[in-house]
Amino acid sequence: MKAMLSEAPGGPETLKLTDLPDPEPKKGEIRLRVHAAGVNFPDTLMIRDLYQMKPPRPFAPGGEIAGEVDAIGEGVEGFAVGDRVLALTGHGGFVTHITIKANTAIKIPDGMPYEDAACFIFTYGTSHHALKDRAQIKAGESLLILGAAGGVGVAAIELGKAAGAKVIAAVSSEEKAAFCKELGADETIVYPRELDRDAQKALSGEIKKLAGPDGVDVVYDAVGGDYAEPAIRALAWTGRFLVVGFPAGIPKIPLNLTLLKGSQIVGVFWGASVYREPEGHAENMRELFQMYAEGKVKPRISARFPLEDAAKALEMMQDRKVLGKVVLTMG
């Protein structure tokens, strides 16, 4: 098998394509021939030791995969060689073969290509959990998405529209704004790369202008940094601010804003919810597969790279040049 390994902390350029023996499935495990692996922002943090999970080295990044079962360990039921599955691995997915616990694999619908499957569970799982479970979004509410052109942002646009919300997509360029409009966003905001206090006030005012005088009901923040506070200032009474990610840095929020608006700051840790609330996760996946079959959601893959070019894929992700999703293909 081939694996793209992180042997020491560093950027994408430090990854090394390595030949390793094929792993053998242990009791309760299955082995997959990986066809595709999704690329996500946490991958760029994990190889630098900046993510909350720090796997022992050497390790392959890659938290979501899709492939076919090619070997089955002792005691596994419900799977056969040749089954098409996707799985959330946390790390280890930038490989041609991998063993996983059988109970973590999810069979792929017949009409779903491997590339779509490998770009599905992380972004749509996160955004569905955020909007449905954490925000309890309702039809007719307004939804502001910061970082709307990225993977989870695109998923939030589609899921927000499916829930009947008015979607405002906030992004860093006109190109990304046009992309979000194509996906169904009702309104777009182009924010500057850096915000001073005046720019923060202007951004907050623009949000209120588009959301209506009462403010925005739900903020989906996949950016953080200086963009969080102006979004919170634009919240409506009892609005919900979803904490999803911090590529622009961890913000410091004046908590008096939540008191004055009766609002909530709500953490979204989807990975933990999968293990803590397995029944809810299973229900969410059934709903997402149904929406995929109905054409309401579909991964927007803007770039594809072979495994040996994983560094280029991660560079696109860390430089915020990605529209939708990036995928690695294993040949």
Rank of each mutant, 00 (worst) to 15 (best):
G225D: 01
E64D: 10
A3Y: 15
G212M: 12
P306T: 11
E187I: 12
I207D: 02
A8F: 11
L45A: 02
W237C: 01
M285K: 11
K296C: 12
I98F: 02
I30L: 07
D22K: 10
H128D: 14
H129L: 06
A170C: 12
T89K: 01
P278H: 13
A228P: 15
G28D: 10
R300C: 10
F269K: 03
V243K: 00
L45H: 01
E283G: 13
L50W: 01
I232P: 15
I145D: 06
E13G: 06
R276A: 15
A272I: 01
N256T: 10
G267L: 00
A313I: 04
A60Y: 01
H129M: 09
H281W: 03
R286S: 13
P25K: 00
F241V: 01
P21Q: 03
H281Y: 08
A66S: 12
P299V: 06
I121N: 11
V81A: 06
K27Y: 07
Q264T: 15
M53P: 13
A36M: 06
E115G: 07
K181E: 02
G280K: 15
V223E: 01
E182M: 07
A8L: 02
F120M: 08
V152F: 06
G90E: 00
R84F: 10
T258P: 14
F120S: 14
G67T: 09
V154M: 11
F269A: 13
V244P: 05
V34Y: 07
T104L: 07
D214H: 13
R304F: 15
M112P: 05
G11R: 00
G267C: 04
G164C: 07
G267R: 00
G151F: 02
V244Q: 00
F94R: 00
F179R: 02
E174A: 15
A202Y: 13
S263A: 13
K176R: 06
D116T: 15
C119E: 03
L210Y: 15
T188Y: 04
A149L: 07
T44S: 09
A311N: 12
I253Y: 12
L242T: 05
A222R: 00
K107W: 11
N256P: 08
A130E: 03
E158T: 02
G212E: 14
R320Q: 08
Y114T: 02
A3I: 05
Q52D: 09
V85P: 04
G239R: 02
M112K: 02
G67W: 13
T329L: 08
A248I: 12
V34D: 04
G92H: 04
P58F: 11
D226N: 15
K16V: 09
Y191A: 09
A231L: 04
I157A: 09
P278T: 06
